[in-house]
């Protein structure tokens, strides 16, 4: 056989084998996939930007079909895409309530005092790495506005060092919820009742987070009174301190500062 013939025969065989293998694989190994996944994928922009929190448009499409993601999953696609996806998914998807981001911290912990001066990058995540951010209210917002930075639709603005969420703009993508190191943002149903129910009280003032002063151990120094960010402590000189539970936000400030460790 001349080299020319060998080459042509070999290449033909190679091409044919490759084609056969691919065809056979497509036929025998094919997983019966939901045609809706393909349809949803086609409706998505296909740029694999990852802003939705899924690794690719294909992953997002699969999540939509599984019911894990809303039709409005795509952040860059706006209403057009989400309507198209909702049409493919039918009634069932439309019925699913819209989710929006919600700030659980509603008191003025944004203005709480600081334990130390933090001069690092103005980013909550890096501030968090240094003793939890330096705010006396250790459970509350650090206030550098990382949620504002990551919001792809500009629904968050920082006011008084606390994020304010514009429910009209929020798409419920959850990027801010995932990025907040203090976990004080949450996704809730977009109904007034839900918003009411999720007030700070439910999050911060759970019973195990409320503090009491051990009247016997208290040395009546008043440090807790002077440092409470929300003025929840009653104290007069010469008398043991008392914590008003309805105002306590469970920030641990008094507990940490108390010299005889009388608060717990």
């Amino acid at each position: 056989m001349t080299p020319l013939v060998t080459t042509v025969v070999f290449m033909a065989a190679l091409g044919a084998t490759a084609a056969l293998v691919l065809i056979a694989a497509a036929r025998f190994l094919a997983v019966p996939s939901d045609p809706r996944v393909e349809a949803v994928l086609a409706a998505l922009p296909g740029v694999n930007c990852g802003a939705c929190g899924y690794s690719s448009c294909a992953a997002a499409a699969a999540a939509v079909v599984r019911g894990e993601a809303a039709p409005g999953v795509c952040l860059i696609g706006k209403a057009e895409v989400s309507n198209a996806v909702a049409t493919i998914m039918g009634k069932e998807a439309k019925a699913a309530a819209r989710k929006i981001a919600y700030l659980r911290c509603s008191r003025n912990c944004g203005e709480a005092g600081t334990d130390f001066l933090y001069n690092g990058p103005a980013d909550c995540r890096s501030a968090m790495m240094l003793y939890g951010g330096g705010k006396t209210c250790s459970g509350g917002c650090i206030g550098h506005g990382t949620c504002e930075t990551v919001c792809p639709v500009d629904a968050i603005t920082m006011k008084n060092s606390l994020p304010v969420i514009d429910p009209a703009r929020c798409t419920g993508c959850g990027l801010c919820v995932n990025i907040c190191p203090k976990k004080i943002l949450a996704l809730i149903d977009d109904t007034p009742q839900a918003a009411e129910k999720k007030k700070c009280a439910e999050y911060c003032m759970q019973d195990d987070l409320k503090f009491e002063v051990d009247q016997e151990k208290c040395i009546k120094c008043g440090i807790c009174f002077n440092n409470c960010p929300v003025d929840a402590i009653v104290w007069e000189k010469g008398k043991p301190a008392f914590i008003e539970k309805e105002h306590c936000i469970g920030c641990y400030t008094c507990m940490r500062l108390c010299p005889p460790k009388a608060i717990g």
């Binding site: 042509v8 290449m11 091409g15 044919a16 490759a18 084609a19 691919l22 065809i23």
Partner: peptide, 18 residues
Amino acid sequence: MFIVLAGVTTTCGLLLAG
């Protein structure tokens, strides 16, 4: 699919051999 892929490969083989 088969014809397209095998055909293109064979033609390329011919050109490369030359």
